[in-house]
Design a protein around this nucleic acid. Structure first.
Length: 262
DNA sequence: ATGGTTGTTATACAA
């Protein structure tokens, strides 16, 4: 069972690339972020033609998340329960007995800004939510654009991306570690120790060509799923296409779910 | 990073 996360930076612009990538990579489940579409504009029919059901939680211009799956999608939760949020940044559902939580974590702009405070409050709400999700669903995958680079392997220059920098600050990384402490594991680090396995590259300054990126798109798996992780990676292919998203898909493959996929 | 690029019911703002 291949489960992926992709920040498409406008599904309206990226739909042809998403269709191509679904055909090439054939994931079973995909969490999308930054769809930037109101729900009535979501391309549900085009994705059905590609073989994927979808559930979505969007808004005009900004944010927007969705889950796509080749198989039935159950128990959909849009937004963080009991957390009033005008921004569409979270959606969860169950597919083949695996609970999937898809997050578009707040960027936070800069330390000391209102957006940074919102990011930390938002992550605190996610912490409470995931604690409940884990109780109800031990087989949990949490994926998305975390807008946090977990450690120094995940940045090109740790002197620049330091404790006082957005996406790597100590408060952000502590909030991320608090999520892991619930009983979650960074899927990629179960299989790879390498530095510079990035998932996002700025559009500016030829950052992709120079591999000046960050690893901020993550696939976390719960304790109960850890032994089922077969492979994990980041598919840089779509980032090399014409007019790409600035993010590449991050994916995790679980074994032992194949019989459920029939 | 003071810039740079991309997206949006844009022409500032978010990333």
């Amino acid at each position: 069972m291949k489960i992926a996360s992709w920040n498409v930076n406008s599904l309206n612009v990226r739909l042809p690339q998403l269709q191509q990538w679904l055909a090439d990579f054939a994931p079973d489940v995909v969490g999308l972020q930054e769809t930037k579409l109101e729900d009535h504009r979501f391309p549900e029919d085009a994705l059905l033609e590609a073989g994927y059901r979808s559930v979505f939680h969007g808004q005009k211009t900004y944010n927007g998340v969705a889950l796509l799956a080749r198989h039935p999608i159950a128990a959909v939760q849009s937004g963080i329960p009991d957390f009033a949020d005008p921004q569409a940044r979270a959606i969860a559902a169950t597919v083949n007995g695996v609970r999937i939580v898809n997050l578009y974590v707040v960027n936070g702009q800069d330390l000391g800004t209102d957006k940074y405070d919102y990011k930390l409050r938002w992550l605190d709400a996610v912490h409470g939510w995931l604690a409940e999700e884990l109780k109800a669903h031990p087989h949990l995958v949490v994926l998305g654009d975390f807008n946090i680079a977990p450690d120094d392997r995940d940045v090109p220059d740790a002197a620049v991306w330091n404790d006082d920098h957005i996406l790597t600050s100590s408060a952000e990384r502590s909030a991320y570690q608090r999520l892991l402490a619930l009983g979650l594991h960074d899927g990629l680090r179960l299989k790879h120790d390498d530095a510079a396995l990035f998932s996002w590259w700025d559009y500016r300054q030829a950052a992709f060509r120079r591999n000046l990126g960050l690893r901020i798109d993550l696939t976390l798996v719960s304790d109960a799923l850890k032994a089922q992780v077969q492979a994990v990676g980041i598919d840089k292919t779509p980032r090399s296409w014409e007019r790409p998203s600035d993010h590449a898909p991050a994916w995790v493959e679980l074994r032992g779910q194949a019989q459920l996929l029939q």
